[in-house]
Amino acid sequence: MLVLILGLVLFLGVHSVRIFANDWRSRQLARLGEKGWKGLYSVISIAGFILIVWGFGLARQQPVLLYVPPMWLRHLNALFTLLAFVLIAAAHVPRNHFKAKLGHPMLAGVKIWAFGHLLATGMLHDVLLFGAFLLWAVVDFVVCRRRDRLAGTVYPAGEIKGDVLTVFAGVLGWAVFAFVLHAWLIGVNPMR
């Protein structure tokens, strides 16, 4: 469990610098330059991600049951995850109403993904992983929205074309991950 926790601290910690230490981040960006900062950020993120994957695998070998979710919540999680994939796609597809309305659809997608998985799983390692991501996404979303309001940030208006592309990309990504990659990468078939 310690490897998983260390991975979460590194990965979510580096992704939280702008939340809790934006002035420090600005100083480091000026000192290291954009490429240097992004390089350091990427190395820490990748190290954290590797530790999360490794630590999660280790923790799954000695599971600690906290609660048993009803089967219908597992099915509901498929819908939550579908919506999360659409929102994550919205962060990358230009001129869609999701981004115009939310400003940060990827964070909204992470919140929905984590919440759905908390409903569908009940092991300690699951609660630690998904709970940490949910807490981080909630805090980051609130901070980013506040920063946008203070800066007067306005996102481009959404268009139907952007919405259609967003939904198509999200559904396609979800289908590939849910029906093929999740079982292969995670070892759990979510469609069973």
Rank of each mutant, 00 (worst) to 15 (best):
L102K: 01
H104G: 08
I88H: 11
L102E: 03
L87G: 11
P94I: 01
M123A: 08
H75R: 13
V68Y: 08
L107M: 15
C144Q: 14
T81Y: 04
A78W: 05
K99W: 04
D126V: 01
C144M: 12
H97W: 06
A137M: 14
P69Q: 04
W72D: 12
R18N: 07
L32R: 10
F130K: 05
L76Y: 00
L65C: 00
G116C: 11
L51Q: 00
R95K: 13
H15P: 05
T81S: 13
S45P: 09
A137K: 13
S26Y: 07
L32Y: 15
T153K: 04
V127Q: 11
V143Q: 14
V154K: 11
L107G: 08
G13D: 08
S26D: 03
G122N: 08
H97P: 10
F168W: 06
F20C: 11
K101W: 15
F80Q: 02
H117D: 07
L12G: 03
K101I: 15
R18C: 02
H92D: 06
M106N: 07
L102G: 04
V3R: 00
L124R: 01
R145G: 12
H182Y: 07
R31S: 06
K38G: 13
M71C: 14
F179P: 08
P94K: 04
P105Y: 01
V188C: 02
Y155K: 12
L8N: 04
N189A: 13
V154G: 03
L29K: 11
F115V: 15
K161A: 15
V127T: 05
L119G: 13
A89H: 14
H125I: 08
E34Y: 10
L29H: 10
P70V: 06
G170I: 12
A78N: 06
K161G: 06
G57Y: 14
L181R: 01
V17M: 12
H117G: 10
L40G: 15
W72I: 12
G48E: 02
R192F: 08
H75Q: 06
F11Y: 07
E34H: 10
G109F: 04
K111M: 11
L2G: 01
W72Y: 07
V93C: 00
L66Q: 02
P105C: 04
D126W: 03
F20D: 15
G55F: 05
D126L: 04
L12Q: 01
T81M: 09
F133S: 11
S45G: 13
A132L: 01
W24E: 06
N96A: 02
V188Y: 12
A175D: 00
L6S: 05
L58T: 13
L40E: 04
V68P: 00
L76P: 03
A84E: 06
I88W: 13
R146G: 00
H75V: 09
W24H: 08
A132T: 05
W72Q: 09
I52W: 02
L4V: 12
L119W: 15
F85V: 09
K101F: 15
V110G: 07
V167L: 00
F11M: 09
L181D: 03
I52K: 02
V164D: 01
V167H: 03
L58H: 10
F115I: 10
W184L: 14
N22K: 11
G7H: 01
Q62K: 07
